[in-house]
Design a protein around this nucleic acid. Structure first.
Lengths: 207, 207
DNA sequence: GTCTATAATAGGATAGAC
DNA sequence: GTCTATCCTATTATAGAC
């Protein structure tokens, strides 16, 4: 068992190993600058580690590091998504809350910290299958969280699967649009529309 | 007036100047590899131009080139979007058609050619205001095309504005999800859901 | 406008001492 | 596991002949 008293919902505070610091730095920097825009030297500096340590833990180099960074970003957002989905009275309200949270994060970072997976995965489309698969897995995991919440609200199975797809797609796209236009509006609007869409599929006994 | 007989809906065929070839190559390569992943030498090679010509037309270097590339991608997609919006009987059907077209383009490029603006703009978030503004303008122009089509279908002004935001956001996000997961499903599902959403706001005289 | 050569720097990755 | 030094290549950008 790990050293006690850690908050599993946020990054554990005190004693964090070198490997973990490297992954966190890689995730944050690639979120901001993308895969090609982020150098390994910059990662090692930001992590307070030496270049030797980076290659010690990640002999596969930058690509292996990117896969780990995507995994880290996936877990971070999954934790937040879970909280938001569980904290709302119904899935429709949860969409509005999700959009608000994403908008908040963007605004507070001065519109530079968008989706941690997208910026890393985009641009490596053809050349790095490992990275593409990690990104696909991240999207699939987030979708499963939404799907489970919709099912819990007694939405039909096929409808819930389709809706989960569109929820993730729309939140991703709205975050992108918000980042590019430096405005919360795309996210807030998308949240309301997703809520409306979900209400169409509510447990209304039959059609 | 230009040399006659050009098809304005696709890239003009025969006599294309050096500057135009450079912009097209930049747009295509940055669409595939992102801003940082694309080198100026690669652009010049692909365009059949020399490095000297590139800096002759773009003394502002890579950033100025990226702005021109985003403008080119914006016009290209705007032309296709206009055709699809005008070709459908109603805006709801147009959404389904748009999604199909985007899915087709992705599949045919083996999932490497996504949105020409997103991949260029992402990752240059904080450092290049010119690029960010060009990307924001592209999104705004596309949104205006959707807005005009919704208005033409007699959807109320405020509703049309909001819907146009979500249409662009959702199509962008679904294209992203489709690219990452190498599947048409996110786009096809998003198209159907957007159609449903628009039908909620149809000209039903009153609520 | 086009070409070649080159400057100046930064990139990913490795070797080997400690 | 950590550190420093280094190799090799690629990058953006410029200079100047033609």
């Amino acid at each position: 068992m790990k050293t006690a008293e850690q908050d599993p919902t946020k990054d554990a505070e005190r004693p964090v190993g070198t490997r973990e610091r490297i992954v966190r730095a890689a995730s944050l920097l690639m979120q901001r600058q993308g895969y090609d825009g982020t150098g390994i030297k910059q990662i090692s500096t930001e992590a307070g580690a030496t270049l030797g340590s980076v290659y010690h833990f990640f002999p596969g180099g930058k690509q292996q590091l990117a896969v780990a960074a995507i995994g880290h970003g996936e877990r971070e957002f999954a934790d937040e998504l879970r909280l938001t989905l569980d904290g709302a009275a119904d899935p429709a309200q949860a969409m509005i809350d999700c959009a608000h949270r994403l908008a908040e994060g963007l605004r507070e970072s001065d519109w530079i910290e968008g989706c941690p997976v997208t910026s890393t995965a985009l641009g490596t489309a053809g050349r790095a299958p490992d990275i593409q698969e990690a990104a696909a897995a991240a999207f699939a995991n987030w979708r499963d969280l939404v799907y489970a919440r919709l099912r819990r609200a007694e939405i039909a199975d096929d409808d819930a699967r389709d809706l989960a797809h569109t929820v993730i797609s729309t939140l991703e796209g709205a975050e992108l649009a918000a980042q590019v236009s430096r405005s919360e509006r795309p996210l807030l609007t998308a949240g309301r529309h997703l809520a409306q869409l979900i209400d169409l599929y509510g447990p209304t006994t039959d059609s």
